Lab assay of single mutants.
Amino acid sequence: HRQALGERLYPRVQAMQPAFASKITGMLLELSPAQLLLLLASEDSLRARVDEAMELII
C-alpha cells in the first residue's frame, strides 16, 4: 500500500524538487496513509510538506 502511494507521490514531488525527489518522497512516506492520501488530493498541502522537507534537508 505504501509502495503504491510512493509511486503516485514521487512524480509530483519530482516536479517540485527534482534533485531531492527520492529523499523527500521517502520522508513523506513516514506519514500515515491517511495523511498521504490528503497530500495526493491537495497540491497545496503537498507543496507545503515538500517545502518543510527541503528546510530539513538544507
Rank of each mutant, 00 (worst) to 15 (best):
A15K: 13
L40I: 04
A41S: 13
E55L: 15
L36D: 00
A4S: 14
E52L: 09
G6L: 15
M27Y: 07
L56A: 11
G26K: 14
M54R: 08
M27G: 02
L46S: 00
L28G: 00
Q3P: 07
E52I: 05
F20M: 11
S22H: 10
L38A: 10
Q35P: 04
G26H: 12
A4W: 15
H1D: 14
R12Q: 14
L39Q: 01
L36Y: 02
S22G: 12
A34P: 13
L29F: 03
L38K: 08
E43T: 07
M27F: 07
A15S: 05
A53F: 05
Q17V: 14
R47L: 05
L9P: 01
L9H: 01
Q17C: 09
L31H: 08
Q17M: 12
R8Q: 15
E52K: 08
E52V: 10
P18S: 08
E52Y: 08
E7V: 10
E52H: 10
A19F: 13
R47H: 04
Q14C: 08
I57W: 02
Q3L: 04
L36P: 00
L39E: 02
L56W: 04
L56D: 10
Q14K: 15
S45M: 12
Q3N: 15
T25N: 04
S42P: 01
T25E: 01
R12C: 06
P18Y: 07
I57A: 02
H1R: 06
E55M: 13
M16G: 02
M54G: 01
L36W: 03
R2N: 15
R47F: 03
A21C: 02
L56Q: 14
S32G: 03
P33Y: 10
S22M: 14
Q3R: 07
M27P: 00
L29I: 10
G6Q: 11
A21R: 00
A48N: 12
A15R: 12
A34D: 09
M54H: 08
A41M: 14
Q14L: 13
R12D: 03
A53N: 04
L5T: 03
E43K: 10
T25L: 08
A19R: 13
R47N: 03
A48R: 13
E30C: 09
G26M: 10
T25D: 00
L56G: 04
M16N: 02
R47E: 05
I57M: 08
R2P: 14
G6I: 15
Q3I: 08
Y10C: 06
P18K: 05
A53I: 15
S32Q: 13
E7N: 05
L36V: 12
R47D: 02
G6P: 09
E52Q: 05
M27V: 05
D51R: 10
R12A: 12
E7H: 06
S32I: 04
S22T: 07
D51N: 12
S45T: 14
R49Q: 13
I58C: 05
E52T: 04
L28M: 04
V13M: 01
V50N: 00
R12P: 04
E55R: 11
A34T: 14
V13S: 00
A21M: 01
A19S: 12
M16F: 10
A41V: 13
A4I: 15
L5G: 01
I58T: 15
F20L: 10
K23T: 11
L31A: 05
G26S: 12
L37K: 06
S32D: 14
I57K: 01
Q3C: 09
A41Q: 10
G26P: 06
M16K: 02
G6M: 15
Y10F: 11
L39V: 09
R12G: 05
L5E: 05
S42H: 07
I58A: 14
S32V: 07
L28W: 01
A48K: 11
Q14M: 09
Q14H: 10
I57V: 03
Q14W: 07
A4E: 15
M27Q: 04
R8I: 15
E55Y: 13
L40T: 03
Q3K: 09
K23L: 08
Q3G: 08
K23M: 09
M54D: 00
L38F: 14
G6A: 14
I57R: 03
A41P: 01
A34F: 13
M54L: 08
E55N: 10
A34Y: 14
A21F: 03
F20N: 04
R8M: 12
D44N: 10
L31P: 00
R47S: 05
I24G: 00
L36A: 03
L36N: 02
R47K: 09
L31Y: 09
R2L: 15
A19E: 15
I58R: 09
Q35V: 15
S32H: 09
M27S: 02
M54S: 06
A48V: 12
A48H: 07
Y10G: 03
L5I: 13
S22P: 09
R49N: 04
L31D: 07
E52P: 00
S42T: 04
L56E: 13
E55S: 11
D51Q: 11
R12F: 13
L37I: 13
A41L: 14
P18H: 08
A34V: 13
M16D: 01
R49C: 07
P33D: 09
E43P: 07
L29H: 02
L39T: 08
L29S: 04
L56I: 10
L37Y: 11
G26Q: 12
P18N: 06
Q17F: 15
R47T: 06
A53P: 00
M54I: 07
L31T: 03
S42A: 06
L36M: 06
R49F: 09
L40M: 10
A19T: 13
E43Q: 11
R12V: 12
D51V: 11
L29V: 07
L40A: 02
M27L: 07
A34L: 11
L46W: 01
A41C: 05
Y10N: 03
L28A: 00
D44F: 03
Q14F: 14
L56H: 07
M16P: 01
P11V: 14
G6V: 14
Q3A: 07
G6E: 15
A21S: 03
Q17K: 12
R2T: 14
A53D: 01
I24Q: 00
R12I: 10
L28Y: 01
I24M: 01
P33R: 07
Q17N: 08
E55F: 10
E52C: 06
Q14G: 04
L56N: 11
A19I: 14
L28N: 00
R2F: 09
E43G: 05
L36G: 02
S45C: 07
S45R: 14
I58Q: 10
R2V: 15
G26A: 11
A19G: 13
L37R: 06
L31I: 09
L39C: 11
E55Q: 14
F20I: 04
I58S: 12
G6D: 04
L9A: 01
A41W: 06
E52G: 05
F20H: 12
R49K: 08
F20S: 03
A41T: 10
L28F: 06
T25H: 07
G6Y: 14
A53W: 06
R49W: 10
A48E: 12
G6R: 11
L9R: 00
L9G: 01
P11G: 08
L37N: 11
A4F: 13
E7D: 05
Q17R: 15
Q14Y: 15
T25M: 15
E7G: 04
I58D: 12
V50F: 01
P33N: 15
T25K: 02
S42L: 04
Q35M: 12
S42V: 06
S42K: 09
R12T: 09
Q17H: 08
L38R: 07
L46T: 01
A41E: 12
A21D: 00
P18A: 06
A19K: 12
S42I: 03
F20K: 04
E30M: 05
L38C: 08
R2M: 15
A19W: 12
R2Y: 14
L40V: 04
D44C: 06
I24F: 01
Q14T: 05
L28R: 00
L40K: 00
L5D: 05
A19M: 11
Y10M: 10
G26L: 14
I58H: 07
L5F: 14
A48Y: 13
A4G: 13
G26R: 06
V13H: 01
T25A: 04
G6F: 15
S42C: 05
I58E: 08
L36I: 09
M16C: 03
L37S: 05
V50G: 00
D51G: 05
